[in-house]
Amino acid sequence: MSDVHTHVQEFFTARAADWDTRFPDDGPAYAAAVASVGLRPGDRVLDAGCGTGRALSPLRAAVGPSGVVAGADLTPAMLQAAVRAGRDRDGRLMLADAAALPLRSGSLDAVFAAGLIAHLPHPAENLRELARVVRSGGRLALFHPIGRAALAARQGRRITPDDLRAETNLGPLLIRSGWRMTSYVDEDARFLALAVREG
């Protein structure tokens, strides 16, 4: 496991137990973001970097009982917190790295990723791996329950021009990775970039 992976695991392991209580009001933002993806009953969707699984219930509601919902995370403690919260009832949880997913190419209709992009060690390569598992025309949602400026303020830092989530950086990054950005929202109350898997 790389140093970056070890750092990410340590960061989230230390925070897993109280993650949901620290951010108790994010539920509606997750539900609204999932609704924006345009999932249909029967679709197959992955929550990449699912953490405690807060997106799994709205994802399950969107794809219905005939759909497939999976959640992948690198940190065992986050998956354990998801199980304690009962969210494993809404989707199959996998201990897996978003950079090397144990899924067939083109097997999914969509990937939902909340807060993931900031933790990707090799963003272009890692987004290409997400593209690999999604069929042509499938969708990607990069989400955060607060916008870039609000997140930076919470973390006591300023946004810099090289921020990956800036529209001018993210659009070209997605194109290089097999995606085409279709919409971009960066408001105090949410960050949501949607993209389509190019053929």
Rank of each mutant, 00 (worst) to 15 (best):
2 S>A: 07
3 D>F: 03
5 H>E: 14
10 E>W: 04
12 F>G: 07
16 A>D: 12
17 A>G: 08
20 D>H: 00
23 F>E: 12
29 A>W: 00
32 A>H: 06
33 A>L: 09
34 V>K: 01
36 S>G: 15
40 R>V: 15
45 V>E: 03
47 D>C: 02
48 A>G: 13
51 G>P: 01
51 G>N: 05
59 L>I: 10
59 L>Y: 09
61 A>E: 15
62 A>G: 10
63 V>M: 02
64 G>N: 01
66 S>K: 08
68 V>N: 03
70 A>G: 09
73 D>L: 04
74 L>H: 07
75 T>N: 05
78 M>A: 11
78 M>D: 04
81 A>T: 13
87 R>A: 10
87 R>H: 14
90 D>Y: 13
93 L>M: 13
97 D>Q: 14
102 P>L: 05
102 P>T: 11
108 L>T: 05
110 A>T: 07
113 A>T: 10
117 I>F: 06
119 H>C: 07
120 L>E: 11
121 P>V: 05
121 P>M: 03
126 N>T: 10
132 R>H: 09
132 R>I: 01
138 G>V: 06
138 G>P: 03
142 L>E: 05
142 L>W: 00
144 H>G: 08
147 G>Q: 04
150 A>H: 06
151 L>H: 07
157 R>H: 06
161 P>Y: 13
170 L>D: 11
171 G>C: 02
181 M>V: 04
184 Y>P: 12
197 R>E: 04
198 E>F: 00
